[in-house]
Amino acid sequence: MTVFITRRLLQSCLVIFVMSLIVFFGVNVIGNPIDILINPEADQAEIERAIKALGLDRPIHEQYLVFIQRAFEGDLGRSFVFGEPALKLIMQRMPATLELALCAMLISIVLGIPLGMWAGLKPESAAGKSIMGFSILGFSLPSFWVGIMLIMIFAVMLGVLPSTGRGQTVGLFGLQVSFLTWDGLAHLLLPAVNLALFKLSLVIRLARAGTREVVLQDYVKFARAKGLSPSRIVLVHVMKNIMIPVVTILGLELGSVIAFSVVTETIFAWPGMGKLIIDSINLLDRPVIVAYLLMTVFMFITINLVVDILYSILDPRVRLQDIKG
């Protein structure tokens, strides 16, 4: 197990290194670093001072080393708009995004697995077909369009749910969260459903495909031959088997949920890091853009690492391979 984790850690470090190279050279080669890193409203003297201060007169590999060194110290530049360190801004917004993303994941698992299993157990039934139809729609509809529809129906036409903001938040372990107040929950519901929709469709498909495959296995028939109740067969024998691939894939999708929260946060004015990046792109707040990209890449790689480790814990077969290898 330790060997496995160490190997994965080393791999992740390598990928982060490569990605930092790509982002750094992307910024410095494709774009003009002076445009990206220095306030466009600065005058000539200021620009020259800044170039020196930022070390832009030095060769590019030295610049990269400085950049990495600063990144390790947590310094990814200052926002032009807010005048605060970019990293701090992102960290401030991150809890809101994580809350939204985790909520969306929860919705997709809690609804998606039962629905998908239902559709897998009774593929020819009307319910099974409707569930699949829903999942096809969930895949095809662009997320922002669904968000607009949700606002139109629930906020404009019915007027039952708020359409913007986070609502009332309370502190939990030093973080502000929405889900502990009624007002916060009401604000959270529409964005979370919106963000969940695509993953929900994915979970339904995975759970359905998994269920259809598992119910044909001999061990399910053997479980029936043991005289187990249908509920135990479905809830223990089938579900535990399909949970492994579903959780793995969904775990890998957490990153993509965070990325897609850009759309949801913009529609629902949810004050998370997704809205921050869109605002920053529109305001050309370049240090924040660079910091966001690096943070997201870092987050992605961490998630992939955690999922791999979790997967090996969940599936006894993978664990064994590792012991052998």
């Binding site: 890998l252 897609f260 997201t296």
Partner: peptide, 19 residues
């Protein structure tokens, strides 16, 4: 594989932020 491990919207976001 590396590129496909990042969601499309993020890749597009990175590029459009630069371009």
């Amino acid at each position: 594989d590396l590129q496909l491990s990042f969601p499309a919207i993020l890749v597009a976001l990175i590029l459009l932020a630069v371009l």
